Simulated assay, not measured.
Amino acid sequence: MIPDRLIEAGTLRRDGSRVSVEVRLPWYRALPASCVAGAALRVDGVEVPPDSLRWEVNGHRSTFAELVPRTDDWWFPADSAVLSGDLALTGDPGAEHVVEVDLSLYIPYIVISESQVLRIEEHDRKSMTATTAVPA
């Protein structure tokens, strides 16, 4: 619904062998974490291995399978989630990278059949430089 705001500009981070980017909810209403059906992350055309992807919202980092029962943890349109995975970035620290995110969401209050709710799939692509994560 609002795919051009899916990736937060300037949020690509590298942390050793992992990359992360902040993602905004491409919907106008809050959704429970359980409604995040999955995502894909590519940097410079290289796909982050799906089994290494992690989703972080409200301080909880999870696999997509771990999100399924989280009906009481809400993702609000004004808040960013963090999508991360295993990928070592190459090139100069100031180099531009093309970041792509695919996101699938269930919209639980829009029923399209007796046993199915609406599922939307959004895509965004942005160019940005990566920053190095600062140790906590």
Rank of each mutant, 00 (worst) to 15 (best):
D73V: 14
G45T: 10
A130H: 01
D72K: 10
V43R: 02
D79M: 05
A33L: 13
R70W: 06
P135Q: 07
S84R: 04
V117L: 01
Y106K: 06
P69H: 07
E96K: 05
W74F: 15
A39H: 13
V99G: 00
V46G: 07
D44G: 14
T131D: 09
S113W: 03
L67G: 01
L67Q: 03
L103W: 10
T63P: 13
E66H: 04
P135S: 03
L89P: 02
V68H: 11
R70I: 02
A78L: 11
A37S: 11
L118F: 11
L83W: 06
G59K: 11
G91C: 09
P93N: 03
A39P: 12
T129C: 06
E114R: 06
A33S: 11
H123G: 02
R61L: 13
V82K: 08
V111I: 15
A33C: 10
Y106L: 09
I107T: 02
Y106F: 09
E96F: 09
S52P: 05
G38N: 10
G38P: 08
G38T: 06
P77G: 08
I112H: 11
D73S: 08
W75M: 05
L103H: 09
T71K: 12
F76W: 11
D79V: 08
T131G: 07
R125D: 00
E122C: 07
Q116P: 00
T71F: 08
P108C: 10
I110N: 02
T129P: 00
V36D: 10
I110M: 08
A81L: 12
T132K: 05
P69G: 12
C35I: 07
E114L: 05
I112L: 14
K126I: 15
Y106P: 00
L105P: 05
V43G: 07
D124N: 09
L67Y: 02
I107E: 05
W74L: 15
S127P: 03
E114N: 08
E100P: 04
R42G: 03
T131R: 06
D44C: 14
E96Q: 12
V68M: 12
L87R: 02
F64N: 06
D92W: 00
P108T: 13
W75C: 01
P135L: 05
L67V: 06
V82P: 00
T90A: 14
H60M: 15
N58C: 15
D73R: 13
I110P: 00
A133I: 01
V57H: 02
A39V: 15
T63E: 13
V48G: 14
P77H: 06
A130Y: 04
W55V: 03
L41Y: 10
D102E: 13
